[in-house]
């Protein structure tokens, strides 16, 4: 299959510590809430981070590579190990735990 979007680089731009990737479907309600929540969490708790928001409608291939099953899914790509959280990310503690900040 053609991979227009190329492989997802598991590398950080510059020397940032965190690479987070949130998969959404357009502005579906839980996707919308998830975007809102993750931007808040990043702003309040992270310093060195890169947040990628990926709309699977626009880039379906990326979802395949990351083996995404349900939307919204947040993938903590870096630092390893990789972690993923499903849902609208309204449980801040849980998100922070998975991102290993707690």
């Amino acid at each position: 299959m053609e991979q227009q979007n190329g492989d997802i680089k598991k590398e950080l731009h510059g020397d940032k510590k965190y690479l987070l990737r949130l998969y959404i479907t357009g502005s579906a309600p839980r996707s919308l809430i998830a975007v809102n929540n993750i931007t808040q969490i990043c702003k309040n708790h992270l310093v060195d981070y890169e947040l990628q928001i990926i709309d699977v409608y626009q880039k379906p291939n990326l979802a395949k590579e990351d083996q995404i099953i349900a939307i919204p899914t947040l993938v903590k790509v870096l630092p390893l190990p990789e972690r993923r959280i499903i849902g609208d990310l309204s449980d801040v503690e849980k998100v922070l735990y998975s991102v290993e900040l707690l």
Binding site: T25, A28, P29, R30, V56, P60, A63, K64, A70, I71
Partner: peptide, 19 residues
């Protein structure tokens, strides 16, 4: 039901099933 959609791999590519 905390999700918006399910992504399924199919022969023709990824199919997104929206709730």
């Amino acid at each position: 039901g905390e999700i918006d959609a399910v992504v399924v791999s199919r022969v023709h590519g990824e199919q997104i099933y929206v709730l």
